[in-house]
Design a binder for these strands. Structure first.
Lengths: 193, 193
DNA sequence: GTCTATACTCGGATAGAC
DNA sequence: GTCTATCCGAGTATAGAC
């Protein structure tokens, strides 16, 4: 599948660091044949991104949509699910990172931040409710979410860097278990009244 | 100054997204003249990085080296200094981000994680002491630091993204003040016994 | 130290045969 | 749908004049 290989390349080396030859070689065809399916490199990138984003949308809806969910138990569940999913989709994480690092109007026909804004707003509303009901300590919801996604995304996008920093593989089952536990404990410490 | 302009370009568009023409144009000379000072593009990149890193080393030593420092007051001070310094050096933040995202053995002759390990270890030791003395709640020090640098670095490296997400400029004086306050409050909530 | 000119390679994209 | 062939532009790097 072309999109799968393209995602692998883009997430590993970024847009500029990936050539059509790289992708074509991975697929097992020639550069020109790629362009039979997509009229330009940017079109491939956009297709990769849209697919990844809609996959992600499905998963997040599943994780979010827990009936009668509230308080710490719910947040704990969402955090754990997020970490697990990101752990299983390192490509997506790196792709998102490259994209949020890119200057506006590079490669993508739309703004990633804007695209995620509805979910962001939903999360803000959740924290507003919980804090208003006294189930969480009062903090700035927007800032909290920014910190949260950073704490999770970072770990996976910077795996190469962390391997150098820690001098061990940060992606083993054991290391990931440690990471999940930390995220849960840390947020709980900060939020529980 | 060549290195300053090179840093601007690399931090804005990454290594692959920056051409010698881009840098030369910013300096006001021709591409060939650049290569009189540095024998290759990679050499420019490495020079930029080493300069940025040693600048950073100086600042971090200053921030860390507070006599008799301990407990929350000290950490609070370091966090605030870090946020302020990163706010004033967005280039450095984006450069570091691009680099920690890059695959091993790309562009740089050394491993960034390895280079930062001594400071990392120092920070781990600090938390170990503080937690041992009961001044902080017990948490995994390594994980805590990873979360902390993520919370800070992210905000600045993803400014473009955040602007789309929040629908406002995340780098105004007011926005930065809010961010500092959040970081302080959040960590305090999580760490104070 | 900076320039022009040039060599060479690579990447994106198109045309047309099979 | 995939290929070869080809075009064009951009990129890195070098040679040599001023």
């Amino acid at each position: 599948m072309i999109l799968a290989e393209a995602q692998r390349c883009f997430s590993e080396h970024g847009y500029d660091g990936t050539s059509l030859n790289d992708i074509a070689a991975g697929v097992g065809i020639r550069r020109a044949s790629l362009l039979h399916h997509f009229h330009a490199k940017e079109a491939i990138y956009q297709a990769v991104f849209e697919r990844a984003l809609s996959d992600w949308a499905v998963r997040i809806e599943q994780a979010i949509d827990v009936p009668g969910a509230e308080g710490w138990t719910y947040l704990d569940q969402v955090l754990t699910t997020a970490v697990r999913w990101f752990a299983e989709n390192p490509d997506f994480v790196r792709l998102a990172r490259f994209e949020s690092l890119a200057a506006a109007n590079d490669h993508l026909g739309f703004n990633l931040g804007e695209a995620l804004r509805p979910w962001f707003q939903q999360a803000v509303d959740y924290f507003d409710r919980e804090m208003g009901a006294g189930r969480f300590r009062k903090q700035d919801p927007e800032q909290l979410i920014i910190t949260g996604y950073g704490a999770i995304l970072n770990y996976f996008s910077d795996a190469h860097f962390l391997e150098g920093l820690l001098d061990r593989d940060p992606m083993t089952e054991e290391a990931l278990e440690t990471r999940v536990e930390h995220i849960r404990t840390f947020f709980r410490s900060a939020l529980e009244p």
